[in-house]
């Protein structure tokens, strides 16, 4: 009996003392955190991908609260959650959400085995960074994709994979959250985050080769040679030429695909258009031929009858439709 009593008293006393100590310690060393940070953190996706530029969702949450205290959430964006999550964050913080257009990762190289002849054989650690440190890689292109899949390894969303036939990575639009991990992983800055565009339709230059024309032409069949035709063709001033390679500004591009028609190297690519540019061009050519034939017939008729003016067909008509 006595033993039991002693045990109970001792244990009880230890418990009590420990509780008191814990109470005071937790008071003394309490970390004062804004309660809103926890709330914001809750609505964030929790993937800790770092796509927002902060170390994980916790960092993003505190940055949001800080920014809200300074009056604006501008420049903060969760690429994973998109506008929905940012809207929620804004409502928690009593702010207005700044709309940010959704983006997607785009691979700007199409130097497949077929397009880009292999001039050397790499023999070593199979990561892009190692090949990049070694030199131009297996091909004559100093800027193109190395195909070892550092971007694949970096993707936390299983959204980018090397196509085994081309050896070039392909982005799965459905899965891509535009966190930018692949962009950072690529030692040659081939992958870029671009606006998804209206109806997901977008146009981009699929080459980053900075060599001058002849060298670029030798290295790859679909390299940009900086001829500048697309720049002249663009009505919206969206295409610029820097470092021997043309670049389409995704903010300005209206996805008219006029540039694709003139590119002699076929290194401008599109996505999610109902018809491929070749089909469009073929159809256009057909219509043009038909129109010409018609015009010819009409002219002949005119010559004969000297009446009935020929109907005028604008070649830009289909482009305008695409907009």
């Amino acid at each position: 009996m006595n033993v039991i009593l002693t045990a109970v008293i001792v244990l009880g006393a230890v418990g009590l003392i420990a509780a008191v100590v814990l109470f005071f310690v937790s008071k003394k060393f309490a970390v004062k955190e804004d309660p809103r940070i926890a709330l914001v953190n809750e609505v964030l996706p929790g993937a800790n991908c770092g796509g927002c530029g902060f170390p994980g969702c916790g960092g993003m949450a505190s940055a949001c609260v800080k920014a809200a205290d300074q009056g604006s959430l501008e420049g903060l964006n969760c690429p994973v959650g998109g506008a929905v999550v940012m809207g929620k964050v804004a409502s928690i913080l009593g702010m207005e959400a700044t709309a940010s257009d959704p983006k997607v990762a785009v691979v700007r190289c199409n130097g497949s085995c077929e397009n880009r002849p292999r001039i050397a054989e790499y023999d070593g650690l199979k990561t892009c960074r190692a090949v990049h440190a070694c030199g131009a890689g297996e091909t004559g292109c100093c800027n193109g994709c190395l195909g070892c899949g550092d971007c694949v390894a970096a993707c936390k969303f299983d959204a980018i994979h090397i196509n085994p036939t081309t050896g070039i990575p392909e982005v799965d639009e459905e899965k891509c959250v535009a966190c930018g991990a692949c962009v950072k992983a690529c030692p040659r800055a081939i992958i870029e985050l671009r606006l998804k565009g209206k109806n997901n339709r977008r146009v981009w230059v699929g080459c980053v080769n900075q060599d001058k024309g002849p060298a670029a032409m030798k290295a790859c069949k679909v390299s940009c040679i900086a001829c500048g035709k697309c720049v002249k063709e663009c009505k919206f001033d969206a295409i610029s030429l820097t470092g021997n390679v043309s670049y389409i500004d995704d903010e300005k591009c209206k996805a008219c695909r006029a540039c694709m028609k003139v590119c002699p190297r076929e290194c401008i690519y599109d996505a999610n258009f109902p018809k491929s540019i070749k089909e469009v061009m073929a159809a256009e050519a057909e219509r043009k031929a038909a129109a010409e034939a018609k015009a010819k017939a009409a002219a002949e008729a005119k010559a004969q009858a000297e009446s009935a003016p020929a109907p005028k067909v604008s070649p830009t008509q289909p482009k305008e439709k695409e907009e």
Binding site: E121, C134, E138
Partner: peptide
């Protein structure tokens, strides 16, 4: 050139 050059880091 028929024969390829092999490259790797030192």
């Amino acid at each position: 050139m028929a024969n390829k050059l092999i490259v790797s880091l030192s």
